[in-house]
């Protein structure tokens, strides 16, 4: 759809170029976050370093052995490396403040440190691992199947194309447009915050990649002009009144003034 949209929007080339640039930057950011090669750091060493990082940054809530504290933080035994990579890699953890749900902020650790933390938590008990690059490559997925899967499983919270939506009591399903494919995959795998777990029996790894391919289609320029947040008719109605009626009524006043 991106290619299609580009074709339709030759006149808005600068705008499209900026969007393409943004997509490029997102991809570049993703590339720089790519996981260190297997074996680049020895596993034992990583676990040791991870434990130190954990004790310094996470243990005050999750406990020194990551066993959790009732009413404060959950146990991390068995959550796997994927959970750590998602929570820390998107900046949700360490938690900034307690509230309806953990908010996304600047990522606090570099890729190596995140990998070390993940290795440590993964060593506490078996859990889902961080997916490899092929498992999350949108080019390998089928966006049409992803559309069907997304609509049936995700759209009720994240909106029809992943723009995000409200949940109960101040919780919310975030927009997925800025989320890296790896993090989308991990979120499905581990079910962070209010999100249910979509394990591999429920949504197979191929399905997950199709969903990622569908979401990838939503990035960049859209057919028909500015997307208005893609949150549906409310935004359209707002702009119809503000912009449409605003300009036209402005003209009536102008025409009226010129006569009298």
């Amino acid at each position: 759809m991106r290619a299609l949209a580009l074709k339709r929007h030759r006149r808005t080339a600068p705008f499209v170029l900026i969007l393409v640039l943004l997509v490029g930057l997102t991809m570049a950011a993703y590339a720089t976050q790519s996981r260190p090669a297997e074996g680049a750091i020895s596993t034992a060493n990583a676990i040791g370093e991870g434990q130190k990082l954990f004790a310094a940054n996470c243990a005050s809530c999750h406990g020194i052995g990551a066993q959790g504290q009732t009413g404060v933080a959950p146990s991390l035994v068995g959550v796997g490396a994927a959970a750590v990579d998602f929570q820390v890699g998107t900046g949700r953890m360490p938690l900034q403040a307690s509230g309806p749900q953990a908010i996304v902020k600047d990522v606090q650790f570099n890729a190596t440190q995140i990998a070390q933390l993940a290795a440590y938590v993964a060593s506490l008990g078996p859990g889902p691992a961080v997916p490899d690059a092929e498992a999350v490559d949108p080019a390998l997925g089928d966006p049409a199947r992803g559309m069907e899967l997304f609509r049936a499983n995700c759209a009720m919270c994240h909106g029809s194309v992943g723009g995000g939506g409200a949940l109960t009591q101040g919780k919310y399903a975030p927009s997925l447009w800025g989320t890296t494919p790896t993090h989308i995959y991990e979120a499905m795998l581990v079910g962070p915050q209010s999100m249910p777990v979509f394990n591999d029996a429920n949504i197979t790894p191929e399905d997950k990649r199709d969903i990622i391919a569908y979401l990838d289609e939503q990035r960049g320029a859209a057919a028909g002009g500015l997307k208005l947040g893609t949150i549906g008719p409310v935004a359209e109605g707002l702009w119809a009144w503000l912009l449409g009626m605003g300009i036209i009524v402005g003209f009536t006043v102008w025409i009226g003034v010129r006569s009298s």
Binding site: A155, A166, I231, W241
Partner: peptide, 11 residues
Amino acid sequence: SIISAGTQPDW
């Protein structure tokens, strides 16, 4: 069977 967040009628 499908519903998405942000489902509203026109204004």
